[in-house]
């Protein structure tokens, strides 16, 4: 029956967890595209062969199938992009390598462009240095915060120029803006008050 392949694609996407991106199914997409081309050729064939007494239902059905294939393919790509976009905000500009493997070439390109656009937008707002929108997602209560390092992360250069060596299980007092990205990445942990 028409459109079965594209539904398989979407099911694959639906089954995966919402915070992951499954591998880009290039084969599946090409199969759907060739199905669409066949349908289109069939419609043109009908129009050419019979001038009157057209099999209207058959043509309508094929047209609907083409439209539906298009909608499903676009949904496939759109859903993946939504997840990718969310990853930019959650994980940051550098994606883990196994996420990157699952992306298509154009998706990687899109992600790079998205990062660029976001950065250049953040430069234009706020005072002269710009405003980092990914920071302070929750209202801050103090400028400095006490953190504990969860791993031997190595050197960290502070805003003042000093170099701090992060060792596992030791505690530091850091400025909030510097600590937040590291906390979000799971390197530091905020010491509970």
């Amino acid at each position: 029956m028409y459109c079965d392949k594209v539904i398989e694609l979407l099911k694959e996407l639906e089954r995966s967890r919402e915070d992951t991106i499954p591998p880009y199914n290039n084969d599946g997409i090409n199969q759907v595209l060739s199905e669409m081309k066949t349908l289109d050729a069939e419609i043109i064939e009908f129009l050419r062969k019979q001038k009157d007494n057209l099999p209207l239902d058959a043509i309508r059905l094929r047209r609907a199938a083409i439209e539906r294939n298009k909608r499903c393919l676009m949904t496939y790509i759109w859903t993946r992009l939504q997840r990718l976009k969310e990853m930019r905000w959650e994980i940051g500009a550098i994606l883990p390598s196994d996420v990157r493997q699952n992306l298509s070439q154009s998706e990687i390109e899109w992600f790079n462009n998205y990062c660029k656009t976001l950065v250049s937008y953040m430069k234009t707002i706020g005072s002269d240095t710009g405003l980092n929108l990914t920071q302070d997602t929750k209202p801050p209560k103090s400028l400095y915060t006490e953190v504990r390092s969860l791993v031997d992360a190595g050197k960290l250069e502070l805003e003042s120029g000093e170099v701090l060596i992060l060792r596992k299980n030791s505690q530091y007092m850091l400025s909030r803006s510097q600590a937040e990205p590291l906390i979000r990445q799971g390197i530091l942990e905020q010491v509970r008050q």
Binding site: T20, K138, E180, I183
Partner: peptide, 19 residues
């Protein structure tokens, strides 16, 4: 229980690690 303002690891990263 804990009040507001606590900074935490991003959910996506912690799920990623668990996986």
């Amino acid at each position: 229980t804990e009040g507001s303002g606590q900074m935490e690891i991003a959910a996506m990263i912690s799920n990623y690690r668990k996986r």
